[in-house]
Design a binder for these strands. Structure first.
Lengths: 198, 198
DNA sequence: TGTAAAGTTGACACGGTGTCAATAGGTGAT
DNA sequence: ATCACCTATTGACACCGTGTCAACTTTACA
């Protein structure tokens, strides 16, 4: 419980975060150490390896940004359509917060099993959110009859991927608001029964 | 023009290709050399670095699979809707062919500017195909009036990304045919004016 | 005052890419 | 025939980033 060590730990996490936010590419352990004001080796006293550090950083961001509270809103919705809308909004607006860390984590996937696992877990959690929204849509009888619940979940999950956000917002230069509203209309027009364009 | 050297070159490319197809992850220069039956150093006589080798491999696949002929079909379509359909079909069915190399190339993006550039070029070419299809849709007056040509192109390009294929086919286990028909209905319902679900 | 935790410096192994030098063998032109 | 060239070989090595280890110092606190 010594405030000492835990201070250093969060200083490391904050340093990692801000480095990833800024330059984004090729952040090395030594860069992070320097930014946190400790030696490179001391980093390994707190995190066994780079993957664990990145994972801890995402969790740190989650707690700072209070992801749970944001998603709670969508679970509180009473109808399936409201829930879908709330979920899409909440998640789409959360993507930019974790984007920079996600880049680093995804880049490690190919070479590091632990990083791959961590990213996969996160995505499965998102998928779970998608599945819940779809399920509620189905019980309301509002799910597009061409789609099974599973297929609809796959589709929703795919549309809401970080990679799609990356492409539209970062590569194509869309405004975040434009992205969100596009995703809302896209998902609702695909998932909700008998929906043509507004 | 010595058939000798050029034989080795294609042997290298074939070896790279088949290695990427099989194990997919962490294919090293030494692995490729071994598979091609030459020394690791000799690889560098043919390709200056790993990025160039991967790029050459994609081009080799393109020529073997005759990507131009496949896409020519979509350019031959007379109406915008036919063209969109043909383009989506052709590209979606081409993705599996280049997928394994794309994984390797994308994995290098973070660390290697040349690989990033090469992947980007390829994707811009795909975007060009999307733009052409959208343009023809627009001249036919069939483009969804909610969308500018640019926005429609962005959307189409995003939907047809390799990453989305990867998620649906590899992660979610969709059959290729299911993926293609989903993409066809998804793109047409989003891009074509006044389209509800079939 | 002694112990433990947290940190320091310096050195090193490992894996993978890319480079270099010295050498060998086959091919083709003169 | 021989010279030059091209392709290939072996072996060694530099560079980079991660992760590890050992020896030592500083700080906290009981």
């Amino acid at each position: 419980m010594s405030s000492f060590s835990s201070d250093t730990r969060t200083r490391i996490l904050e340093a990692t975060w801000s480095l990833l936010e800024s330059q984004a590419k090729n952040v090395r352990m030594s860069d992070i150490a320097k930014a946190a004001g400790i030696s490179r080796q001391a980093l390994y006293l707190h995190f066994l390896n780079r993957a664990k550090l990145l994972v801890a950083t995402t969790k740190h961001i989650d707690s700072v940004k209070d992801v749970d509270a944001r998603l709670a809103e969508s679970r509180a919705a009473t109808t399936g359509m409201e829930r879908l809308d709330a979920f899409v909004t909440a998640w789409c607006n959360y993507i930019p917060e974790i984007y920079s860390v996600s880049v680093a984590l995804r880049a490690m996937r190919a070479s590091d099993a632990e990083a791959a696992q961590a990213w996969d877990n996160r995505m499965q959690a998102v998928r779970q959110g998608c599945a819940s929204a779809v399920a509620e849509l189905a019980t309301d009888g509002m799910l597009n009859p061409d789609l099974s619940e599973n297929t609809a979940t796959d589709l929703l999950w795919t549309l809401l991927s970080v990679e799609n956000w990356e492409r539209l917002v970062r590569e194509c230069g869309w405004k975040q608001a434009q992205y969100v509203s596009s995703m809302k209309s896209l998902t609702s027009s695909e998932l909700i029964m008998g929906n043509s364009k507004s």
